[in-house]
Simulated assay, not measured.
Amino acid sequence: MVLARGRWLLAGAMTVVCMLLVGPSAPGGALFVRSLPVDAVGDVVSNRVMTWNICNPCEVSNVDRAAEIATYAPQVIGLQEACVRDVERIRDHLESLYGLVYHVEYGMVLQHRGRCGGVPWNPGGFGQAILSAAPMTDRVHVEYPDGGSEDRGYLAVTTLVGGQPVRVFNTHLAQRRQEAVRADQAGVLAAEVARHDRAVVLGDFNAVPDAPELAPMWALAADTDPQCRPSPAGSCEPTTDWQSKFDYVFLRGLTPLEHRVRPTQYSDHHLLHTDVDPA
């Protein structure tokens, strides 16, 4: 009897150990999967694009990040502060748990063990990523000449939005209180965006709409929110926990239909997605 009880205790302990080793981001671990809201989108929305700074370093499960994305199922997602390993797992979870299949392109600006783990001789890549339900071509990855306190850059691809080819950019500008650096970065980005008649520019610009450094972008494109403008008359919905608008979906040659800002417990930045008319 004592021997049998000992075997049961050992089996229970081994189960706990296995659960800890597998962790909450195991694709097959339905026990750890957060259920989607009843009004979640069932399949990819072909004309929807989204930007999300997923927060790093943050102790967040990639299963939960995938669930947030799956709730809105955009055609294209631009992620900032992303680690390659995290993006790989998010993409795997989107497919295995929700049946959403995405291609991925990376725009890493750092190999950083503190940010992304790994071993000293092979630290994880950190930067931007674009996920698209359609294949992506003509990838361009540019690091800004001056990243400020941390390397920064942009990633650009051509993919389909609403069935039409569109140039998609994803960027993360220099941290706050580095206005001059951001101004130079915005100028580099705007010069490339200007080459395309139809473009979507996603990202965390670390600047409020009327910040002077964003002038080059406003000259080329409009925010997805028609009420948001770089003037005191503009009404811009905050996209961060500190009630500032730092995250943008700039549209050039596309018309916004509907946008939403969705706070999330998994990042200090909200999810921002918009449906567009590619025609």
Rank of each mutant, 00 (worst) to 15 (best):
V87T: 10
Q164H: 03
V87S: 04
W121K: 13
F250R: 01
N206T: 10
T239S: 06
V161S: 00
A82R: 02
P120R: 15
A207I: 04
Y106W: 13
H269E: 01
M217K: 09
R7T: 10
H141I: 02
L257N: 04
A4S: 12
H270M: 00
R7G: 12
I130R: 05
Q185A: 09
L36K: 11
V168L: 02
D275C: 01
T240R: 11
P37D: 03
S35D: 12
M217Y: 09
T274P: 00
D138R: 09
Q178E: 13
W242P: 08
V201P: 00
Q185K: 11
R85N: 11
M14Q: 11
V45P: 00
A233P: 01
Q175P: 01
H273C: 03
L202Y: 08
M1E: 14
R198F: 01
F205Q: 05
V157N: 01
S35A: 15
R229V: 14
I69E: 07
A134F: 10
D146P: 00
Y248E: 02
E88C: 10
G6Y: 10
G148W: 01
V45A: 09
S46G: 03
S61A: 12
A11D: 08
L214C: 15
G28C: 04
T15S: 13
P74K: 15
T158A: 02
R229Y: 07
V276K: 07
V201T: 05
V249K: 00
E192Y: 07
N47K: 07
L21K: 05
R5W: 08
S231K: 04
Y248S: 02
E213D: 15
L214N: 11
G153E: 03
L160D: 13
P135N: 07
V2H: 12
G125P: 04
Q227M: 14
P120Y: 12
G117W: 12
L97K: 13
E95T: 07
W8C: 07
S46I: 07
V17K: 08
G203E: 00
Q227F: 09
D86I: 04
R198E: 00
R85D: 15
L202Q: 05
W52M: 01
Q265S: 08
D247W: 06
G118Q: 13
H196Q: 06
C83W: 01
C228Q: 12
